[in-house]
Design a protein around this nucleic acid. Structure first.
Ligand SMILES: [Zn+2]
Ligand SMILES: [Zn+2]
Ligand SMILES: [Zn+2]
Ligand SMILES: [Zn+2]
Lengths: 128, 128
DNA sequence: CGGCGACATGAGAATGAGTCTCATTTGCTG
DNA sequence: CAGCAAATGAGACTCATTCTCATGTCGCCG
């Protein structure tokens, strides 16, 4: 059976992601946890984030610099993000038009098993 | 004054990118160059690719695995890609709709200085 | 022709995100 | 409480990418 244990560390990771609404790297979350007194090993932070991402509980994307950044999103479904490249704050956006367009285009070119990435970066109102 | 020298190595890099139409990593281009007899140091391959990318002469994007992959594109303007995740072959696609949509959405949320990434991955007809 | 100075190259060291190992700890169940 | 498999974490390790610096190359001027 799937023995999924609930450990203090995993809860600490989930919890801190929920308290902040920003995209941050594993290392940054690790640092935040340490500051908040809830120390968790770096390896465990990586493992937990990966597990949560695989489950679809949190979202991952790659920052323009190429690092993976993670965030707890409210919507469980497929969506994209409008991310402030200064402070990491993000808005979740849905793009039915874009979904339709990409899948139609891919099909027109004979591609199968299609996925896509779409992220919008900018400076949010507060950071302007 | 910007003395831009054209060296054998830089030409070799540009040339091999033009002969193949695929997205490949710096390491892969380096290996191809070595095979083709036109040996170029790895550091130089990295440097040249970066320079070409900064100039806008070639396109960079991050593979799902997170490595940077490079390709010589025919269109000089802004465009996106439909990339085969198996063989690296790519089609250049224009998405006026998407351009419009992203910029309108970003503005609606008060974001400024907006950029976006959009890539579509799949398996091309040959690789299906 | 010969030499100077700026730029380019490349071998190898360094960096840094992310993964792996393995001894130890800790939920869970009975 | 006992027993065990899953989870943890310190540190070793991988691997893409960047940096360092000694050496090579090109253009130019006298
Ligand atoms: Zn999200
Ligand atoms: Zn989508
Ligand atoms: Zn392109
Ligand atoms: Zn675009």
């Amino acid at each position: 059976m799937s023995t999924r244990r609930t450990t203090r560390q995993q809860q600490a990771v989930s919890s801190i992601l929920e308290r902040h609404g920003d995209f941050r790297s594993a290392q940054e979350w690790h640092a935040l946890l340490r500051e908040s007194g809830e120390a968790v090993g770096l390896a465990t932070v990586y493992r937990t984030l990966q597990t949560l991402a695989d489950e679809g509980t949190i979202d991952v994307l790659r920052s323009p610099a190429g690092e993976a950044v993670y965030r707890a999103c409210s919507s469980g479904g497929h969506h994209h993000h409008l991310v402030c490249r200064r402070c990491g704050r993000a808005e979740e956006i849905e793009a039915a038009e874009v979904e339709r367009w990409t899948s139609a285009t891919a099909t027109a070119y004979g591609f199968t098993d299609v996925t896509h990435t779409l992220e919008v970066f900018g400076r949010c109102a507060d950071c302007s």
